[in-house]
Design a protein around this nucleic acid. Sequence first.
RNA 1: GCGGCUGUAGUCUAGCGGUUAGGACUGAAGCUUCCCAAGCUUUAAGCCCGGGUUCGAAUCCCGGCAGCCGCACCA
Length: 560
Amino acid sequence: MESQDILSLCRRRGFLWPAYDIYGGLAGFYDYGPLGASLKHNIETQWRKLYVFEEGMQELVCPLIAPEPVFKASGHLDAFADMYVECRGCGESNRADHLAEGLAENPAALSEEELGRVLEEHGVKCPVCGGDITAPRRFNLMFKTTVGAGSSKSGYMRPETAQGMFVNFSQIYRHGREKLPVGAVQLGRAFRNEISPRQGLVRLREFHQMEAEIFFHPERKTWPRYNAVKDRTLPLVPDGGVAAELSLSDAVSSKTIANEALAYFMWLTHRFALDVGLDPKRLRLRQHERNEMAHYALDCWDLEAETTYGWIELVGIADRGCYDVQAHLKHSGADLTAFERFDEPKEVVREAVTPKFDVMGKLFKGDTKALAGKLSEMMPDAVRGRDEVVVEVDEKKFASPSSCYDIVTSTEKVSGEKFVPHVIEPSYGVDRILYAVLEHAYHEEDDYVTLSLKSSVAPIKVGVFPLMAKDGLEVTAKELSESLSSDGIHAHYDESGSIGRRYARMDEVGTPCCVTVDYQTIEDGTVTVRNRDTKEQVRIGKDEVVPTVRGIVEGGNIEA
RNA sequence: GCGGCUGUAGUCUAGCGGUUAGGACUGAAGCUUCCCAAGCUUUAAGCCCGGGUUCGAAUCCCGGCAGCCGCACCA
């Protein structure tokens, strides 16, 4: 099997194809056809089932376009761009900061101008051919646009759905009844202007994500259901260690995985992968190497699947610390903190220098306000026991006698403290998952292709055929198809071509079972139900078709 | 972005400067009591795009676009 076989099947059968094909196409953009759209929808439904229904996270739908300050804060505007120099001789392009390695303290942090100066001063040449290089050019991976007419604002297509959730922390926290941990999720499109999109669905410029942002108290990174699964094992490939099946609790206690919450969402991710039909033998959770990890991440693991492209990343699960929320707090000025109530309110005794305005007013007239302000900022110990205090305002010195102020002791009740939450982020690439699902389901034997899709994600749940489109068989078959459809089961009626060809068509698009009306149906009211993977058939009564098929679809197995 | 290879119906492919671009599969309509891509009839559908060379270009040359592989990139 080659990736071309999958992509060829996808095109032939209406899963997906390169977008804008009649205009020559556009690299990094794909259309989903009827079956692909349905498969994608089913994968997303399966994900919602876990994250929204089972884990109780809040789903948000945020805009695809965001104003510039959002990405200034998130760091995408500066860090999501790389600087390149090109060789005037051989045309080779190189990362400018890589060439300046060792020539400046932190080349990656320099501006284009600064970096250009460093390269010039040291006479850096092309590492390939030794030719002269151009000045550094910045290439930002975000699509830029403008919002509104005239002197419009800059906006960017979001490069991840995550920022929409970070900026909404206060809403999420409030709707979660002000408790931590609390999770939000978002499914939707994201955009990255990749330098060179490759490998079909693996690197797109417009793609689909399913992301969860789960907010924690920094010292309590666990999850309610952790205990229920802590003895389950995961295929782990730790950074610098050896691949091993480890239980969650062993991985956490040996510090292989940073905390229980991260371990839990790694487990949930692995479970999701199995739910959508990925092959457990071709899955692993690989820890990022130190230099691979974003600077703010505390720990990061990828769920990887083995495909004809090699091991590809399907999901990234990162402990991002407080980085994102902190950044938005700082840039927006909004109070993006959580509040934790102490078990017992604490009494805090505070002393403060308190100006006496009536005395001061008589002495200092118009300077009173400024003077009093200075006084109240002073530490009580700095004035205690003195007869007078010299205070400077606008380069003028004032001697304030002790009658101008008191040292007042007050008792404050503090019932808790504010803190910036930490975030654990499982980030799923829908298109890659969909591709991996297709590859893992693909089986070919003597040129006969079967997609063994899980019935939960299969675009068509059941094929319904008359053996021949006559003698009333087609009437009965259409009735059956309609009763399945009205029960919410996606049925596909087909009467064209030979029966074998119709089975083959359904096998190739992963339909788990087929119901056929034949001549025996006229005699005894029974039909056949065929299993995609075993090709075996059983006869059941017409009336049993709907419940039987529903059982196959919901049960996940396709035993007729 | 760079280099190498490639581009003919939905898919796979023949073609190598000279008729109306050929085939297979698939698709559509139909015939055949037809349960695993059967057979028969009918039918639809193609030279990636744009220049150039030539009497004549799918074929040779240039540019663009797209795909594959390698380099780089993937916060």
